[in-house]
Write a protein that binds this DNA or RNA. Structure first.
Lengths: 139, 139
DNA sequence: CTTGACCTTCCAATCATTGGAAGCCTTATC
DNA sequence: GATAAGGCTTCCAATGATTGGAAGGTCAAG
């Protein structure tokens, strides 16, 4: 299999496969006499694993660990679970951050007339740093 | 005020202030005879506006627009509201994406014993692409 | 033999921020 | 007046993951 075949079979872009190799996430592929990279079905499995892990938002760094555990027959599921739960904790933290942003803005937008007049609570919030509420103007 | 003073007063790092200037988000600061940047309290207001907008997750591109509207006395609040709601829509899309990741992983982690044995539903999901559930193994 | 589709490497851009290096300016102290 | 500390200047580079392009080599079919 060439890199293009592996890309189709795994769903990982050929360019990305080369990148993953360059950073050491996947081992260096074998080469034909003319220098083309060669892939086996087992290489494709690794690529699919990586792709699925990326879909779940794992960082490349954590995927390195997961691939290592995956290929380690003496792993404990506790190790895998810890990596996953660490990631879940980061996801939840990010969600909470975005949730707070969205709620604040939704609130401000709700208070904004949205007409042709220039007066706007959104701009007032940005101006004043968000340290107050529309019903409680700063002293 | 020097850039360091403006940084303290606005909460925006001096390095970041230079960056914002370089990309045209804020106008070029005046200079002393020796080349130091000079800032006025009104410049600090702009920096605070930018900082608050970044805290709410607005992209630099949208902040450009917001600053323009802020300083345009003939703006309509509808324009501001539209920019804000576009951003809210992006935030909600991102939240939904992260929520799906987190829920999937939480489910998988729940099904994982987390003990010293190697068997692990998390790794099985990554291996098989998540196209099935623990109770419904693939045919 | 030519065309087109593939492969190779290298370099650059994205987004927002941070870091460092090398060198100049200002202020305080001796 | 010399010197040291600390702030300022510019330029270059790195982050994370991915994508884009350019320039050139290789393979298969027509």
């Amino acid at each position: 299999m060439t890199i293009g075949d592996a890309a189709k079979a795994s769903g990982v872009n050929a360019k990305l496969i080369r990148y993953y190799e360059s950073i050491g996430l996947i081992p260096e592929a074998g080469r034909t006499a003319s220098g083309y990279r060669v892939y086996s079905p087992s290489d494709v499995n690794v690529l699919r694993f990586v792709k699925r892990a990326r879909t779940l938002g794992f960082s490349i760094e954590r995927i390195q660990i997961l691939v290592g555990l995956w290929q380690d027959r003496s792993r404990s599921s506790a190790e895998v679970k810890r990596v996953a739960l660490d990631h879940v904790a980061e996801l939840e933290a990010k969600i909470a951050e975005l949730r707070a942003m969205s709620d604040t803005l939704t609130h401000l937008a709700h208070a904004c007339h949205g007409d042709e007049r220039p007066d706007c609570p959104i701009l007032r919030d940005l101006e004043e740093g968000g340290g107050h509420c529309c019903d409680e103007p700063p002293p």
